[in-house]
Structure formats: structure tokens, C-alpha cells
Design a protein around this nucleic acid. Sequence first.
DNA 1: ACTACATCCCGCCAGA
DNA 2: TCTCTGGCGGGATGTA
Length: 357
Amino acid sequence: MKNDNEVGHRQHKKIVIVAMSGNTLLYLAGPTDVFFHANSILRDCGIENGYDVDVVAPVSSKKVETETGISISCEHAAMEITGTIDTLIIAGNDFQEINQLAFNPFHEWLSTRNEDNTRRIASICGGAFALAKAGILEGRKATTHWELADKLKKNYPNVRVNSNPFFTNNDGHVFTSAGVTTGIDLAISMVEQDYGKDIALRVARKLVFYLSRPGLQAQFGSLLRDYEHEHIAQKMKTLVKGHLHEKLDMNQVADQMNMSTRNFTRVFHKQTGMPPAKFIEKLRVETARKYLEDTALSIERISEKCGLGGLVNMRRTFLRHLLTTPSDYRRAFQSSLNDSAMNELLELTRDSRVRTN
DNA sequence: ACTACATCCCGCCAGA
DNA sequence: TCTCTGGCGGGATGTA
């Protein structure tokens, strides 16, 4: 199968999610929503051919019962799919199958999926059992829900099992994830792999509202998006570039803008709807967010670089703006993949010859 | 939790 | 008369 770079974004990526029986809806709803929101964000970016998601049943009746009492009628059964698949996700474990470890027509079909006809094969939680039964995990590293890890190890000794409820693992083209919500993390990491970190973060920010993440989080849309087109905000941003780590006095900033403090405050407020000091604070938080997402710098060091006044103040400021702490923010959003494209916000804290005093 | 202090914000008013 | 600008001062907010 051609790799993604060869195919480019000219055609939809076919995502097949197998809805295993007896599970919570979130197993399949989480990743489905990730790809759905990714499509909407991609369309905003002018990319029409995002993901084509097909939720299928593992059985020919095409009906799947979930533990919530809601049953799902799928349009297709997995074995009806014969062509190439971009991403195949086994969402959750089949509770009947997991106990008898039987090899049924679904596993037979699954065993035909390989690197040539499926670019990525993934499992969520006990979905790893289905992959193991089909021989896909043979000799590979894999993870599953911690309660099931021992059983997986015992029954499939050739699978190198890791059990961490917050863990997502990939070994070549095979991806496995542990707890329910890691299925969402898994799908987000796939979006990141396909379209880059910015798109993935936008999806995460859209979805994080629904998740039970550490700490009570706000939605993480850009704090500055609505203001950056304003002339005075842009000018201010340029001016403070490289100086965020310094104390920025509004009188000095106004002076640099060749305006009196009073008039500067007035014009700034008129154009952006917020006072200048608040804008600088948002700029600091945005920059700190990028450092938390893209680097391994200590939180203390980040607070210094962004002028957030030490750990305690940074924590307070984050709580005020994002309703979460820096460490929780990092846990939720730090990228799993390295990305050299540190965006322009990071430049704000780099040395510059522009002086504010 | 409380306090003192610093800084910021903004209404008001006067001058250009 | 209208608009823009800048100083003053008091309340609000943040910090130590």
C-alpha cells in the first residue's frame, strides 16, 4: 500500500471502526467524533477530503448491543470490506469472545488485514484480544486495559504487553491503546500523524470539553484569535517580541507606541475590546501553552521565559484563563510526536534587538 | 485568610 | 461643535 505522503490528501482516508459488543458507547463514539471534528476543521482549512468513517459490526447480523442498552445497527459487517483500508480500529473487546477466546469468521477476516491492505491497524482496550487472536500482535509491543493485561499475557505469550490505563502504544503500523478515553488520544495522534499537530490540537481543544481530564478544563481555543487582526494588537505583539520574560510597564509600552498611557489604553480597548495589560497576559499564557505542548522545559523555566512570575503565579494565571493548571495542561496536550515547527509565538520570547525601554 | 502596596483601568474633564 | 488627546484620581485587581 502506498504510504500517506505518496497518496497526499487527494482522496478520503477510509477509517473502519469495528464496534465490538457489550462495551460502552465511548469506545466507538470517541474516535468517531475525533475524525468527524477533524473533517470539519480540515474543511475550514480548505481540505475537503478528510476521513471517511465507517462503523462496522464484527458479526454478519450487523447489529451490536452495547452495555448501555443502546443497540447499533451498522450498515456493513467487517467481513464485507475487501479493499484497502487506511485505518482499522477495533473499538473495545467482545465480552463473549474474550472469555472463550474462540477464533470466528471475524478473526479470520481480521487476520487477512496486513500492512499491504491496511495502513494502520489499531485497538482500543480489549480490542487487543481480537488483534492477538488474528495473529497481528505476534512479537509486537501492545497495551490493553490494565485489568485485562494479565489475561492477554497469559493467553498470548508472544505479545509484549504493557498495562497502563493512560497508555497508547504503537509498534510499526499497529497501534494499541488502554483505557476507554485513550481511544480518543489514539485517534487524535492519528490525526496528528496525518495532518500535523495544529490540526490535532484544534480537534483536541474542541473535544476536551467532553472528557474527564485531570483538572477542570476550559475549552482551549486560542485566547488571541479574535484580536490578532487588530492593528494595535499586532503592533503591540511585535513590540513585546523577545521581551515577555521582562517586566512590561504599560507606561513604557505606551511610550514605545508614541502615545500617552491614557490614549493608548483607550485606543487599545476600542480596537480589541480588552485592556493592554490583559492582552499581554494572554500573550504570556499563549506562549507558555506552546512551550508546554512542544518542549520538555520545566514549568518553572517556562514561567520565567514567559514572564509569568514563577510557579505559583503561573498556576494562578493558568487557572484564571484556562481553568486548569500548567501541569494538567501539559499532561493533556503535550505532543507525542516531535514537531520542528515551533510557531511564531515562541519567537516572542527569543532575544530581539527591539527594546521596550 | 488577611493586609499593604503596586499597578492597571477607566470616567471625567479640559485643551488643541 | 465635534473629535482626539492627555492628565488626574479613585476604584478594581493582582502580588508579596
